[in-house]
Design a protein around this nucleic acid. Structure first.
Lengths: 132, 132
DNA sequence: CTGTATCCCCATAGATACTG
DNA sequence: CAGTATCTATGGGGATACAG
C-alpha cells in the first residue's frame, strides 16, 4: 500500500509519505461528505450547508477553502446581490472519487464483520473485567 | 463513492454511513502506518515502536488495541519473561490493503498537482493581501 | 519487554454574534 | 446569501513515571 517513497525510509514514515498526505487530505469529518455531494454536480454554499446538516458555517467554509486550496474544488462567486457562490469539483477532484469509492465499497462489504469483531471484543473485555 | 446507504438520506450523511465508518477506522495519524508495517508480516510491539519512530507508547498501544477491536489485527501474548507480544494482520485486515493501496496510488500520482495547486493558491492569496 | 497511569497542554471544533 | 470574528472548552496526544 504505502508507496516506495516512504517504505524505504521507516523513520520518516510520517509526514512526507504520499499516503499520509492523501489521508490528511480527506481524513476529517466533513471533507468526504462534501466531495460526495459535489460529485453530483455544482452546488451553492447554502445548499451544501443544508444537505450536510450539523456542520457549522465555520467548518463548512474552512473545509471548502481547504479543498479549493488543494485544487480539488473550484469556487465561483457571482457578483450579485444577494451573493451567490457555486462550488464544483475540479478534474483533479473527480479523480479522487475512484479511490474513495474503493474504500466505500470495502466499508460496505465488511461493515458487518467490523461490528461483529467489536461486539466480540467488547464481550470478552466485559467477561475479563467481571472475573477480575 | 459514498454508498447508497447514506446517499438517500442527506441529513444523516454523518455517522451511520459506511464510508464514514471506514474513514474513521483509518483516519488518524498512526493507523495506516501500522497496517502498512504489519502488511509485511507479524511484528512485535518494540519493533513497531522503533520503526514508526515518533509515536508514543500510549498511542502505539491505543492504536493497536483499536485495530484489534476492529478485527483487523490479532494480538498474541507469549507468557514468557520477558514478555513477548506479536501483532499480525487478520484476513479482514489484509482486505483493507487493496483500497488503501488505491488511495496511495492516487496520492503518488497526483501529489505534484496538489502541491502546485497549493502553491498557486497561496501565491494568489499573498498577492491579494498585498493589494489590500 | 510490554505495557498502564497520570498530568498537562494546546489545537481545534462548536456556538454565537456580526457584516457586506 | 455567504461568509468573518471571537470566545470557549473538550478531549486527543505527548511526556513522564511506574509496574508486572
Amino acid at each position: 500500500m504505502v508507496s516506495k517513497a516512504c517504505s524505504l525510509a521507516p523513520n520518516v514514515l510520517s509526514a512526507q509519505c504520499p499516503t499520509r498526505q492523501a489521508l490528511d487530505l480527506i481524513a476529517d469529518k466533513w471533507t468526504t461528505l462534501l466531495i460526495y455531494l459535489l460529485s453530483k454536480g455544482k452546488q451553492r454554499y447554502g445548499d451544501l450547508h443544508r444537505q450536510v446538516g450539523g456542520i457549522s458555517q465555520k467548518m463548512l467554509t474552512q473545509t471548502l477553502r481547504k479543498l479549493e486550496r488543494d485544487g480539488l474544488v473550484t469556487r465561483h462567486v457571482y457578483p450579485e446581490v444577494p451573493p451567490r457562490t457555486e462550488y464544483e469539483l475540479t478534474k483533479l477532484g473527480h479523480t479522487l472519487i475512484g479511490p474513495l469509492g474503493a474504500l466505500c465499497e470495502w466499508a460496505g462489504t465488511h461493515l458487518s464483520e467490523l461490528e461483529q469483531a467489536r461486539k466480540r471484543y467488547d464481550h470478552l473485555q466485559k467477561k475479563a473485567a467481571l472475573s477480575a
